[in-house]
Amino acid sequence: MDLFQIVFLALIQGLTEFLPISSSAHLILPKEILLWPDQGLAFDVAVHFGSLIAVLAYFRKDVSRLIIAFFQQFGSRGQTPDSRLAWMVVIATIPAGIAGLLFNDYIETNFRTSLVIAITTILFGLVLWAADRRSNLSKGVYQIGVATALIIGVAQALALIPGTSRSGITITAALFLGFTRSDSARFSFLMAIPIIVLGAAFETLELFKEHTIAWSDIFLGAALSAVSAYLCIHYFLTFIERLGMLPFVVYRLLLGGALFAMLAFN
Score class of each variant (00 low, 15 high):
1 M>G: 14
7 V>T: 04
11 L>A: 07
19 L>G: 04
20 P>S: 14
23 S>R: 05
23 S>I: 00
23 S>N: 02
26 H>N: 03
27 L>F: 08
31 K>E: 15
40 G>S: 14
46 A>E: 01
46 A>Y: 06
46 A>T: 00
47 V>C: 12
51 S>N: 14
53 I>H: 13
55 V>E: 00
61 K>Y: 13
62 D>M: 02
67 I>L: 11
80 T>R: 10
83 S>F: 12
95 P>Y: 09
102 L>T: 10
105 D>A: 14
109 T>F: 04
114 S>F: 11
117 I>L: 15
120 T>K: 10
122 I>N: 07
124 F>S: 00
127 V>T: 06
129 W>E: 03
132 D>C: 08
133 R>E: 03
135 S>W: 13
142 Y>P: 04
146 V>I: 12
159 A>Q: 01
161 I>F: 13
164 T>P: 01
170 T>L: 01
176 F>Q: 03
180 T>L: 07
183 D>L: 07
185 A>V: 03
188 S>R: 04
189 F>A: 12
194 P>T: 08
195 I>Q: 05
196 I>T: 12
196 I>F: 11
197 V>Y: 07
197 V>M: 12
200 A>S: 14
205 L>G: 09
213 I>M: 08
214 A>C: 09
215 W>Y: 13
220 L>T: 11
221 G>D: 01
228 S>L: 05
233 I>G: 08
235 Y>F: 15
236 F>G: 02
240 I>G: 04
247 P>H: 09
251 Y>I: 05
251 Y>M: 02
259 L>G: 07
263 L>K: 06
264 A>I: 00
